[in-house]
């Protein structure tokens, strides 16, 4: 039975079904338990947190990734699965300590001051949650000081900054400078992204990484995390 629940969790991750009300890809799944209901059921059954995460959630996401690579899945499919993983991790968070699962780390994300465009940042947040990170989203048009304060208080391993406009991307450099002034720069790895942002720009302002899209952003965070042991 426990193995059945793990398999169902994996299957529902592949289907991208967060709750019983979600449609998924295959027809006639509405009404059947989704990932959140199955996680609750698994916890009540005393399932291993490690098995739920590694076999159920990560196992499902691996298959989703393969399907995306093969052209069978589209980005909305990936996001639905990632959202389901994110919802599952929220439920599992209180149980992670002592579970034997390596916590991937915390990341603060924000769209910088005077920029209201947050679609890209929101997608990155979903994908990061799906990859097992704890994400604190500060929103859009975020004041520099708010970001600095959040880094000081939350002590994240990563900071993701987003901008869509050429007129606002310069604010990313201001954030980095203010973090340096406050002695916080070395505590956090900073990745930047957004339509006008480039690898060269990221280097020029002293960022640690650049993600051209949501998937690359996750890959960059993963790479930076392995460098630091996060």
């Amino acid at each position: 039975m426990p193995e059945d629940i793990i398999s169902l969790i994996q299957e529902n991750i592949i289907q991208g079904r967060m709750t019983k009300d979600d449609e998924g890809i295959d027809e006639e799944m509405v009404g059947q338990p989704g990932v959140t209901e199955l996680i609750e059921k698994g916890l009540a059954s005393g399932l291993s947190i490690k098995d739920i995460i590694t076999k159920g959630l990560s196992g499902g996401m691996n298959i989703v990734g393969q399907k995306f690579e093969a052209g069978e899945y589209f980005i909305p499919d990936m996001l639905a699965s990632a959202q389901a993983v994110g919802a599952a991790m929220e439920i599992l968070e209180p149980y992670l300590a002592g579970s034997g699962v390596n916590v991937k780390g915390k990341i603060i994300v924000a769209t910088v001051k005077d920029d209201l465009h947050d679609i890209g940042k929101n997608i990155v947040s979903i994908l990061l949650r799906g990859a097992g990170y704890t994400v604190k989203d500060l929103g859009n048009n975020v004041d520099i000081q708010v970001i600095v304060d959040a880094v000081r208080e939350e002590k994240p391993q990563f900071l993701g900054l987003s901008a869509l406009l050429t007129s606002t991307m310069a604010c990313m450099a201001d954030v980095i400078q203010r973090l340096e002034e406050n002695g916080l720069r070395d505590q956090v790895k900073i990745i930047v992204g957004g339509a006008p942002v480039s690898e060269e720009f990221a280097k020029s302002i002293g960022a640690d990484g650049y993600g051209a899209d949501g998937f690359q952003a996750v890959a960059v965070v993963e790479a930076l995390g392995s460098d630091t042991g996060s």
Partner: peptide
């Protein structure tokens, strides 16, 4: 919080 319609594309 995210205000994205992406989930409704899938059907």
């Amino acid at each position: 919080p995210q205000k994205l319609y992406i989930g409704h594309i899938r059907p």
